[in-house]
Amino acid sequence: MTLKDSAAREAYLKTLLDTVDEAYKAARTEVQEALDAAARETGTRQISVALPNGVEIAKVSLTSGTAETKVVDEEAFKAWVMKHFASEIERQFVATVRPAFAKKVLTELTAAGGTEWADPETGVIHDVPGVASRPARARGHRMTFAETGRDAVMAAWRTGQLAGVALPELTGEPIRCSRCQGEDGPDALCDACARPVP
């Protein structure tokens, strides 16, 4: 393969990759919105995924987001520690809060879900400045493929079963499978692509 051929192949694949990536992100957003709605309305947190011919290929499960308290104003947090816990300040060229103390306070604030921290030695409750609870990971979902799920998807793509479902923009119009040639009929379904056949 020449350099020109290799570069052309890279260009083709990059174009397809970008198209697939954009479609994937849109589909993932759509699934997340539908899962969130299903969880609110019916309590559904998991669904099965199947090919058009009914072969189950994966499960999609709702995951919960997590929150984490972080320092958002270093100076305010440091001033609070200097005032109330001066021994936890490390003096270098600049004064900084000892990492172990910051980690301890932030971990306890995360667990408490707020910005009030109780000094375990004195019992004094401090409203800690310069910190905020922010999502560390957004609520999402995960897809778990069946053992042969990915192979089944690739086979379905090669036979045209997914042409009208996944990325029809790559083909211009739906590809019909070689078994039924896409001839629609009223009675039976093609067992390869699940389309009506004469």
Rank of each mutant, 00 (worst) to 15 (best):
P135R: 05
L51Q: 11
R134E: 14
E169G: 13
R28G: 15
E108C: 07
S178K: 15
G160H: 08
E56S: 14
G149N: 06
A192G: 04
G65C: 07
K103F: 14
E121T: 14
R195N: 10
A192C: 07
H84M: 01
P135C: 04
T44A: 01
R28F: 10
E147H: 13
K103S: 11
G140V: 01
P186R: 15
V197A: 04
G54K: 09
E108G: 00
E183N: 00
A23K: 07
R179V: 15
E90F: 12
R142V: 12
E41C: 08
L16C: 08
A76Y: 05
S64G: 07
P120N: 01
P129I: 04
Q46P: 13
D191L: 10
G113C: 11
T63V: 02
L167H: 10
K70S: 11
D191C: 09
H84C: 03
S178C: 12
D127N: 03
T69Y: 00
R142T: 09
A38F: 01
G130S: 01
A7E: 04
E108T: 00
D18Y: 06
A79E: 04
Q161L: 11
A188T: 07
C177M: 11
P52Q: 06
T63L: 01
R45W: 04
F145L: 14
D73T: 02
R195W: 02
A23H: 13
K14H: 05
V60Q: 13
A111E: 03
R150G: 13
K78Q: 05
A8T: 12
D18M: 04
A86F: 15
E173H: 02
A100H: 02
A58Q: 02
G43L: 03
R158E: 08
E22Y: 09
E116C: 05
E56C: 06
K83F: 06
V197T: 06
I57F: 01
A138F: 01
F145W: 05
D151I: 09
V94Y: 02
D119F: 00
A112L: 06
W80L: 03
A37I: 05
S48N: 11
A163N: 09
E22N: 08
L16H: 07
T69K: 00
M143N: 07
R40E: 04
E88H: 15
R91L: 02
G123R: 08
V165W: 15
T2E: 00
I57N: 12
T148E: 12
A95V: 12
A112I: 08
E74Y: 14
E121I: 08
R179K: 15
D21E: 11
A26G: 11
A67P: 00
A192F: 00
K104S: 10
P135Y: 11
